Simulated assay, not measured.
Amino acid sequence: MRYAYLALALFCVALVSILGFRGMTSTRPPNEVFPNTFFPEMSRQAKFKPQASTPFFADGRTDRPLPAGVVPRGELREDDFLYQGKDAKGEFARGFPEEILINAQLMARGQERYNIYCIPCHGALGDGNGITKSYGMGTTPTYHDDRLRQMPEGEIFNTITHGKGTMMSYADKLSPQDRWAVIAYVRALQRAETGAPADVPPSHKPELGLK
């Protein structure tokens, strides 16, 4: 009798192997493999289309506003110095956040971003003689003015972020890290304006033909 059960088990395994695991693949989507009568939701999914209306919500809109206080993942930005340019007292901070390392790579990045977004108005030397001046688009202050030389780095960061006067905000074009890089490059332009050969490190003097 046990041989009969064993034979039946082997038969079932063989049947499943032949019918259920034939090794065949299909490139057709599931709604074509399975009849719509069994899985109608595969081809006719209920969904809201952008800018459409719906009676489901009280305001009749499918586009939903963000909940109050929602923060995108990775965008909590608790560091006020890094993301707002302010110190613990809520005042514009001087210097740079500890996350911003002043090195050749940062300066090169700052110069690149400056050349893209700042040169048209502020000029290559930071003197306010950009190309927009020749088109009568207003007067741009020079970075070499004492007021801007003494301005806290945090205030410059705030101006880049929110804009000021006729200058628009660049928050959508420059990340917080890039804003600090631009500020570092602006400080370099200011230093270069009043620099002297004695300010050049001895190791770099031969590159500039200095003794």
Score class of each variant (00 low, 15 high):
Gly130Gln: 00
Ala88Ser: 14
Pro120Cys: 05
His162Ser: 03
Gln150Thr: 06
Lys173Trp: 10
Gly163His: 01
Arg109Asn: 11
Glu98Cys: 01
Glu112Ala: 14
Met167Val: 11
Arg187Asp: 13
Tyr117Asp: 14
Asn103Gln: 04
Thr132Ala: 10
Cys118Trp: 06
Thr161Lys: 00
Gly138Phe: 04
Ala124Gly: 03
Gly163Thr: 13
Gly85Trp: 03
Leu125Pro: 00
Ile131Lys: 02
Arg113Glu: 01
Gly126Asn: 07
Gly74Tyr: 10
Met137Pro: 03
Thr132Phe: 00
Gly126Ala: 13
Leu106Met: 06
Gln84Glu: 04
Tyr170Ser: 06
Asp145Ala: 15
Asp127Glu: 11
Gly110Asn: 08
Glu98Asn: 03
Gly165Phe: 12
Ala88His: 12
Leu125Thr: 05
Ala93Trp: 11
Ala181Arg: 13
Thr161Trp: 01
Leu148Cys: 04
Asp79Phe: 01
Pro176Ile: 03
Ile160Leu: 15
Gly128Asn: 05
Ala171Cys: 05
Gln177Trp: 08
Ala184Arg: 12
Gly95Trp: 00
Glu153Met: 09
Met168Lys: 08
Gly126Arg: 13
Asp178Leu: 09
Gly110Trp: 03
Gly154Thr: 07
Asp178Trp: 07
Phe96Asp: 08
Ala171Met: 12
Leu125Ser: 05
Met137Leu: 14
Gln177Lys: 15
Leu106Thr: 03
Gly128Pro: 08
Asp87Lys: 11
Asp80Cys: 02
Phe96Glu: 05
Asn103Ala: 13
Asp127Pro: 07
Ile160Trp: 02
Gln84Arg: 11
Gly138Ala: 11
Gly130Trp: 00
Ala88Pro: 00
Arg147Thr: 07
